[in-house]
């Protein structure tokens, strides 16, 4: 199946511009694109996630709900989505906009759910092998006052994090976020402060 069955056509047409935005981003390579997937696909994914089981995870850094890795899911739609993310065509697209080579054999994929009072404090995502982190946000009608923003931190010339946020991204429905995992890819998900659920599918492409 071609990726034009999954992604809005204007995204594919805009590839050069997206590539430029990603590679020339401040502090560390990142991009946030609204209306990324074809709307019906995003809607169905959101519905499909209702059948997945989430497990509460909590430590000093975070408090949220997460599924296990989707490599073993029996959920047909999620299997299809995973195949799409793993497809040669989509990986080539990501390689083009990131100017990189991506491992065809390894990918992590799971869903995250944050409820009222949940958060994920500042971290860099650095784990051996991870190259790009990506997040598809799927919560509907998310408002700024619901919290749950993805925030990116500035760092100094030694690569140490500063207490200063240079980008704050409200998690809109059908928004795609991606950044290059590196020592300075400092980011957090702010506390959710309403009774809405912040739901996303995310994962990592590897080197």
């Amino acid at each position: 199946m071609s990726i034009s069955n999954w992604i809005n056509s204007n995204i594919l047409e805009n590839k050069e511009n997206i590539r430029k935005q990603f590679l020339e981003a401040n502090f560390f390579e990142h991009i946030s694109i609204n209306d990324f997937l074809i709307k019906e696909r995003a809607e169905k994914l959101f519905e499909a996630l209702k059948e997945e089981k989430y497990y509460k995870e909590e430590n000093d850094l975070y408090n949220f709900m997460r599924t296990v890795d989707f490599k073993n899911t029996k959920n047909k739609l999620i299997i299809e989505f995973r195949i799409f993310l793993f497809s040669e065509e989509f990986i080539s697209f990501i390689e083009d906009i990131t100017n990189s080579n991506i491992n065809r054999k390894v990918m992590d994929l799971h869903s995250l759910k944050l409820e009222n009072t949940n958060y994920l404090l500042c971290h860099d995502d650095l784990v051996l092998g991870r190259q790009f982190a990506f997040i598809f946000n799927l919560s509907k009608n998310w408002k700024e006052e619901d919290g749950g923003k993805l925030e990116l931190f500035e760092s100094d010339n030694k690569g140490e994090v500063l207490g200063k946020i240079f980008k704050s991204i409200t998690p809109n429905f059908n928004q795609f976020n991606m950044f290059k995992v590196q020592k300075i890819s400092y980011h957090q998900i702010c506390e959710v402060v309403s009774n809405k659920e912040r739901i996303s599918i995310g994962g990592w492409y590897h080197v």
Partner: peptide
């Protein structure tokens, strides 16, 4: 006074 290091404390 605010003491904030996002990777350590606030």
């Amino acid at each position: 006074d605010l003491k904030y290091n996002p990777m350590k404390y606030k």
